[in-house]
């Protein structure tokens, strides 16, 4: 087993799915949470001036989705064959498209425009997306891509968690999208994931 060191800010953000994957697989890693000041010092030493960076036996690699796919393979949650891996990739790509659209709204500078765009996300864009995703999971028999839990399920669960924290999805989510709720619960009720979440540092985002 290689040594893993994950460097990211002290938030969930773009690294939480990796931390949950480590927890799910019960694999040891160094969870290196750094402050903005520390970041200023090490930023020039990182490949693209971005975090998270995962060091695998000392070799630094960036890009959180690439890293997730790599870890999924190591942890045997990447799919049982090429078709299942393709399905998982497709599912994750849809989530990343949705995330990109949502994050684009958060970056809007004009407060009035931003409020309007956020409302559209809440009432139109995300519900239409979740409806399709929910059907996909139902059709696939309860998981995002495989017949058991894969990394694409973890990507969904952590995305939903991020939207809950930002108050974008509320208490009625589980009733509206029961299949997605089931995936989320399968991830977060996993005993080792639960153990990680119980002891992880509390963060607002």
């Amino acid at each position: 087993m290689p040594s893993y060191k994950l460097t990211y800010f002290p938030i969930r953000g773009r690294a939480e799915h990796l931390r949950v994957m480590f927890a799910y697989a019960k694999v040891q890693y160094e969870d290196n949470r750094i402050s903005q000041d520390e970041w200023k010092t090490i930023k020039p030493t990182t490949p693209f001036g971005q975090l998270p960076v995962l060091e695998i036996d000392g070799v630094p690699v960036e890009q959180s989705i690439s890293l997730a796919r790599y870890l999924a393979k190591q942890f045997n949650i990447d799919g049982k064959d090429d078709m299942e891996r393709l399905q998982a990739d497709v599912f994750v790509s849809h989530i990343e498209d949705s995330r990109a659209g949502f994050v684009g709204v958060l970056k809007e500078q004009d407060p009035e425009k931003k409020a309007k765009l956020l409302e559209t996300q809440k009432t139109e864009v995300l519900p239409a997306f979740f409806e399709k995703l929910d059907k996909r999971v139902a059709k696939n028999g309860g998981f995002s891509a495989g017949k058991s839990l894969l990394w694409s399920d973890i990507m969904l669960a952590t995305y939903l968690e991020a939207l809950v924290i930002k108050d974008i999805i509320g208490a009625d989510f589980d009733a509206k999208y029961p299949n997605l709720a089931k995936v989320k619960d399968a991830v977060f009720n996993n005993p080792s994931v639960k153990a990680y979440i119980d002891k992880r540092p509390h963060t607002d985002i």
Partner: peptide, 13 residues
């Protein structure tokens, strides 16, 4: 796997 990771990294960039 590591070469696949480097490919994915370039594709994501």
């Amino acid at each position: 796997d590591l070469e696949n990771l480097l490919i994915d990294q370039a594709v994501d960039l």
